[in-house]
Design a protein around this nucleic acid. Structure first.
Lengths: 170, 170
DNA sequence: CCTAACTAATTAGCCGAGCGAACGATTCCC
DNA sequence: GGGAATCGTTCGCTCGGCTAATTAGTTAGG
């Protein structure tokens, strides 16, 4: 067992594996709700009603992108927009019952691609994935630190938000 | 140690983390060579000269997609097309020196997004990722088994292919 | 009070990357 | 020889990123 000589290829291999896996995950969408929409939806669920700017920050995406996905989510009745009274420039987006339901349903889909594949794995392997998961989440995480260019200045501003009820841990 | 009660949220969390990480990886492309192109390129390197159908199979993508990316790769001189003498329907795609060089260069880029983030990780965490990597690779793997719908029928056919020299383990 | 500067979201338009359907060209096989 | 199958391509669609520019609203100063 020589796990010494640290894998010098870790970064590119990880990038390749994630690129490909990500591609397939993105493809098999849940009904007509795409992975991108699901991701945004789960952020709204996790963080409570968010301004679009905050959502863009959470999703690590530029504002125009979020405007569009928010539009699609609203079309399908999964979220609702509401303008801030105090500052009518900002609009918040809030989960609807339908959105919450879809999120829950999606979480329960055991027949989802990845769950199916996971069933075929040895327990050891599943354990390894569980161990790696938080690290992956941190890699993409809200922590940002180095945060590329300018959008730390994007989070928090208007009246309090603070994770209200109805979380779901998607 | 109760790793019993397996993390019921593993699948969705994994999917979410991978979706997001994959998004960011796809964005920051290497020069003007996108992640998709790099992935295809590395398949050609790993598996030797491939027919476009085989490449599509390896990349888990439909033929039209591969036609286009092969075109871009050829434009940039990273691969070259060559029609099969025996069966003039098939065209193979082969790495050029330039392609091999770019692949090597790409493998050595330490300043790439993911490598940068990896540097900030505790050794334990890096180890966990290394442990998980082969499993992720297997998840996306060529193994296919369940292989969605119809394109096992796409692999192998014409004259031998069999991994010739010049691999590089990207 | 009114203008200038800033900020939030949107619009407009670009491009990459998937897909399916339809189409030549070629080969296979009866 | 001729119909069926196969390979690659073309066409046209959608989605999901991006920048640049616009619109609407707020705030600060003179």
């Amino acid at each position: 067992m020589p796990p010494i000589a640290v894998d010098i290829d870790l970064a590119p291999r990880l990038r390749l594996a994630l690129t490909r896996l990500g591609r397939r995950l993105r493809q098999q969408s849940d009904g007509d709700v795409t992975a991108t929409m699901l991701s945004a939806l789960s952020s709204v669920d996790r963080l409570g009603p968010l301004t679009l700017g905050e959502l863009a920050g959470a999703e690590r995406v530029q504002p125009p992108t979020i405007t569009r996905v928010a539009g699609r989510l609203e079309e399908r009745g999964l979220v609702q927009r509401e303008v801030d009274e105090r500052d009518r420039r900002v609009t918040r987006v809030r989960l609807t019952g339908e959105g919450r339901r879809l999120l829950a349903r999606s979480r329960r889909r055991k027949d989802a691609y990845i769950a199916r594949r996971l069933r075929d794995l040895a327990p050891d392997d599943v354990a390894a994935l569980e161990r790696a998961l938080p690290i992956l989440e941190r890699l993409v995480g809200d922590d940002l630190d180095s945060a590329g260019r300018g959008w730390g200045p994007r989070l928090r501003r208007g009246g309090g938000v603070g994770a209200p009820p109805g979380r779901t841990t998607q």
